[in-house]
């Protein structure tokens, strides 16, 4: 019977496809949140496996902070065009203007927290009842607690103490009008699983994941790209370094890592040997407090 044995990546893939199809089967107006990063690109690849030769039963939705890497945006547009799937983009800049929100100040003024406003507006505009996202439980300890079908109230809030029991592979997506469900098909994948899957499936990624020369400044041990979105001070030394990105978020809150890894094999070797977590190494926004992610999720963040 050993012929009927699945490799762990096949098991994770099958689980993710099952979850995506549950979304298609249970919701009327789902959406797939797509950023152009490796995790959401992986989700799109899984959706192809789940629904082809049919169309996706959901549009791709990007909440664009205006501070994104051009390479990620290009990859996003190109992928949506190649697949012939619908892409909806909503801009945080527009929300700031319409709602007269206050732009965050400071050297690395990040619109990351303001994304939530645009996301909630977009959910309301299109009456989305489920939003699929590429979050993983290994990323952060609040995420380690979250269900695969995570119910949010009409304000988008997560209540970690009142999560629905989630048993077997049976997902309960029933909600009241105005509520929505965030769905995380790759909850059980680790960073390394994603990379191994990308290698196996030969998935194309934005070039910033691979080693390249970039002008950066050093900030508390992290390398931040020089861009129009951060304010340089006289004391900042601009250096050109060989870097790559381990995650792709805003240019203001994502740090680069020094690396010569120019192909997937090298990246996997680096990640296997690393002693720093993905978010710890690359996210400037998680360090605010011990419960930074839990608090943001409670307020409607992904």
């Amino acid at each position: 019977m050993s012929a009927y044995r699945l490799d762990y990546l096949d098991q994770l893939e099958s689980e993710a496809i099952h979850i995506l199809r549950e979304v298609a089967g249970q919701f009327e107006r789902p959406a797939l949140l797509f950023s152009g990063g490796k995790d959401s690109i992986t989700l799109v690849h899984l959706a192809l496996k789940a629904f082809r030769p049919g169309k996706f039963p959901f549009p791709l939705v990007h909440i664009d902070t205006g501070h994104n890497f051009k390479e990620a945006l290009d990859c996003r547009d190109q992928l949506a065009a190649t697949l012939g799937e619908k892409l909806i983009v909503r801009n945080v800049g527009d929300t700031i203007k319409a709602k007269q929100l206050t732009e965050p100040k400071g050297k690395f003024a990040s619109r990351n927290a303001l994304q939530t406003y645009t996301l909630l507006d977009t959910i309301e505009e299109f009456k989305f009842d489920a939003c699929i996202g590429g979050a993983r439980r290994d990323e952060e300890k609040a995420r380690a607690k979250e269900r695969i079908f995570s119910v949010r109230d009409e304000f988008g809030q997560w209540d970690p103490k009142l999560q629905r029991p989630e048993l077997w592979n049976t997902y309960n997506g029933r909600i009241h009008k105005g509520e929505n469900v965030r769905v995380f098909p790759i909850s059980n994948w680790t960073e390394l699983d994603v990379w191994n899957y990308i290698r196996r499936e030969k998935i194309e990624l934005p070039s910033i994941y691979f080693s390249h020369d970039r002008e950066v400044i050093e900030h508390e041990g992290q390398l931040v790209a020089v861009s129009e979105f951060i304010q340089l001070e006289a004391s900042d030394k601009v250096l050109t370094k060989k870097v790559r990105y381990r995650t792709v978020g805003d240019m203001t809150c994502t740090a680069a890592v020094e690396s010569k890894a120019s192909n997937i094999d090298d990246i996997i070797s680096e990640i296997t040997a690393t002693k720093t977590s993905e978010r710890g190494e690359t996210r400037i926004d998680d360090k605010v407090s011990e419960a930074a992610m839990e608090d943001r999720k409670k307020n409607g963040y992904f």
């Binding site: 762990y8 290994d138 380690a144 607690k145 103490k161 909850s187 059980n188 390394l192």
Partner: peptide, 13 residues
């Protein structure tokens, strides 16, 4: 509540 944790060895995830 339940937290999910991940580790692997060369033999298993």
């Amino acid at each position: 509540d339940v937290a999910y944790k991940y580790f692997s060895t060369p033999k298993r995830k």
